[in-house]
Design a protein around this nucleic acid. Structure first.
Length: 269
DNA sequence: GCGGTCAACTGGTGAT
DNA sequence: ATCACCAGTTGACCGC
């Protein structure tokens, strides 16, 4: 008996938790204490018309009691609400989703021996929810308009998508994280390029500096080409130094006047 | 089998 | 105290 067979009955068999509070969705709003909230809830088995009890579906935690609802959605709503509203949250049946060539998604039921084993010891690994294309599209569309949701928007979106508000909240959190990561990668690339550009510029300027130094050295008087250690500053050279500076090919700041120990300082001054 | 993706979780933090 | 958000992590699933 496959999902389709279930679906054709128009009934939903739900294994979940009945919260003492108004609804699981409302309890989920208090996201800071999900574990505690779950511990307060009671496992329940529900049978209802399809599409009525999606908000009872709870995520699976490895150490938590299996409070997943066992439900099947009808084929008409499979495209939008196909998986999490039931199929992907099966506690004893895992559902493999395959994409047909036309892009339409099909759900293939298969028995999971692991899930069966988990049933034996009462524990369960969490099942992977895959949002349908329609659900993702709607979430993306909503994300375009506002990257964060207020509680009302969250409730409304969850109702539209037939997901729990917590799932919508998680999707937005992860979506923001992905956006941020993507932006970080873009920034990183940009900074890399900046770094390369600056490195090239630095290299070019260093080279230019070397050339200017070489040029300056070539055009400097003989005494200026002598090592600095062999030069002594003339104590009374202000005027002459300034003149020399004015004659400098680089015409920079006035240079102090140096004289060679090999020349006569008094003659120079 | 392995790596990537992503829903879901945990623990921390700041705002109210 | 409660809530929303975030960073980091986990685990299921999928394609190769």
């Amino acid at each position: 008996m496959g999902i389709d067979d279930f679906s054709q009955t128009g009934l939903v068999l739900g294994l979940g938790l009945s919260s003492p509070s108004s609804s699981a969705a409302a309890g989920d709003q208090k996201s800071k204490k999900p574990a505690a909230a779950r511990k307060k809830t009671e496992p329940s088995l529900t049978l209802s018309l399809s599409g009525e009890t999606f908000d009872q579906v709870r995520p699976v935690r490895k150490v938590d009691f299996d409070y997943n609802k066992v439900s099947c959605t009808d084929r008409q709503s499979a495209d939008l609400y196909g998986q999490d509203s039931g199929a992907s949250s099966f506690s004893n049946v895992s559902v493999k989703r395959e994409r047909e060539t036309g892009g339409e998604e099909v759900e293939i039921e298969r028995v999971s021996s692991r899930a069966s084993d988990e049933d034996d010891d009462g524990s369960n690994g969490r099942k992977k929810l895959r949002l349908t294309k329609a659900q993702s599209a709607l979430l993306e569309e909503s994300f375009k308009h506002h990257s964060t949701l207020n509680p009302k928007q969250k409730q409304e979106l969850a109702r539209e998508l037939k997901l729990r508000p917590r799932q919508v909240e998680v999707w937005f959190q992860n979506r923001r994280a992905r956006t941020k990561l993507k932006q970080t990668e873009v920034d990183c690339e940009f900074l890399k390029k900046c770094c390369e550009t600056l490195t090239d510029e630095n290299r070019r300027l260093q080279k230019e500096l070397q050339e200017l130094k070489a040029l300056k050295l070539a055009q400097a008087p003989l005494y200026m080409q002598l090592p600095a250690a062999t030069l002594t500053m003339c104590p009374s050279c202000e005027r002459i130094g300034a003149e020399n500076a004015a004659k400098s090919p680089f015409n920079m700041a006035p240079k102090p006047h140096f004289y060679s120990p090999f020349t006569n300082p008094s003659a120079a001054c």
